[in-house]
């Protein structure tokens, strides 16, 4: 008798899980993930009965899921690559693109480091392994320890494209599995340099002013400078979705773009649209 009861209980709970309808799914970039989670949470609270499933995996994963129809929104920390556009075109799928926020990457060093500003060329030299000592860029005689994200990260690709001029990272670079780990390591390693999203900056590390005009002007990484586009290492964060599902999704997108949604953007440490 007990067994029968147990089985029926299990069956009941399964049917409950199924009854909770998932309205639509968001998948992709791990950079956008915390933001989407928060937005979806607030949205679901406001609209009882709606349900949004949010998962990460990386920008590329989200876009290929959009292509195969296993997600409704692909969240991405980069714009679509041309070959991805070509694939969508080949499949006869018209898509829409919405920028929901901006993210800025800050270069960080240990607080004990004298260096407080670097040009893009110097950063490229450090990350490709051509500059190996801090005294080459005006600091103490100390070996540079380069921290980077893992190759799977969209941030890794973005930094490579916009700071390293598409050159390969030095093979001596230390690849960390998470942004938090970079902050931790930089804070405890004197000669360290790393890059993290603005949201991750803490007192235990020092940010570097960056120049993209060969040293004429240096810009501090902060939300104001990122908003005004003065800070160069800034990237838009995107939602991609198919035109056919626009009706289903648009209330949510409207919410994200609304003043309330953009307030969440700021709270989560990203840069709002305006």
């Amino acid at each position: 008798m007990k067994k029968v009861l147990l089985i029926s209980l299990i069956a009941l709970s399964i049917s409950f899980v199924q009854a909770q309808k998932v309205n639509f799914k968001v998948k992709g970039s791990d950079t956008v993930l915390p933001l989407t989670q928060k937005e979806a949470e607030v949205y679901m609270k406001k609209n009882a009965g709606s349900s949004i499933m949010v998962t990460g995996g990386g920008s590329g994963v989200g876009i290929s899921a959009l292509l195969s129809g296993t997600t409704d929104i692909a969240q991405s920390s980069r714009s679509l690559k041309l070959d991805e556009k070509m694939k969508l075109n080949d499949a006869g799928k018209a898509f829409k693109e919405t920028i929901i926020a901006y993210d800025a990457l800050a270069v960080i060093v240990n607080p004990a480091n004298k260096v407080s500003k670097l040009t893009r060329e110097q950063l490229e030299g450090i990350y490709t392994g051509k500059i190996t000592n801090w005294k080459q860029v005006g600091g103490d005689d100390m070996k540079i320890v380069v921290y980077s994200r893992e190759t799977s990260s969209g941030t890794y690709e973005f930094f490579k494209e916009h700071v390293l001029n598409k050159k390969n990272y030095a093979s001596s670079a230390l690849l960390m599995p998470a942004t938090g780990a970079i902050v931790q390591s930089v804070s405890q390693t004197k000669g360290a340099i790393g890059y993290v999203g603005l949201a991750y900056i803490e007192k235990s590390v020092k940010t570097i002013d960056v120049s993209y005009d060969k040293g004429k002007t240096y810009v501090t990484p902060n939300v104001e400078n990122a908003k005004s586009k003065k800070y160069p290492i800034t990237r838009p964060l995107y939602y991609y979705y198919l035109a056919t599902t626009e009706k289903l999704i648009s209330p949510y997108i409207k919410f994200v773009l609304s003043a309330e949604g953009q307030k969440i953007v700021l709270q989560e440490g990203y840069v709002p649209l305006n």
């Binding site: 190759t151 799977s152 599995p177």
Partner: peptide, 30 residues
């Protein structure tokens, strides 16, 4: 540290096989 240089001593960073699989499989296109 996961740097992909050949470690010549116990006091330098190194990368291991399981760590590489774990770190990269998520984003490698199927």
């Amino acid at each position: 540290g996961n740097s992909s240089n050949i470690p010549h001593s116990f006091l330098v960073p190194a990368r291991t096989i399981p760590a590489t699989i774990a770190a990269e499989l998520g984003e490698a296109p199927y």
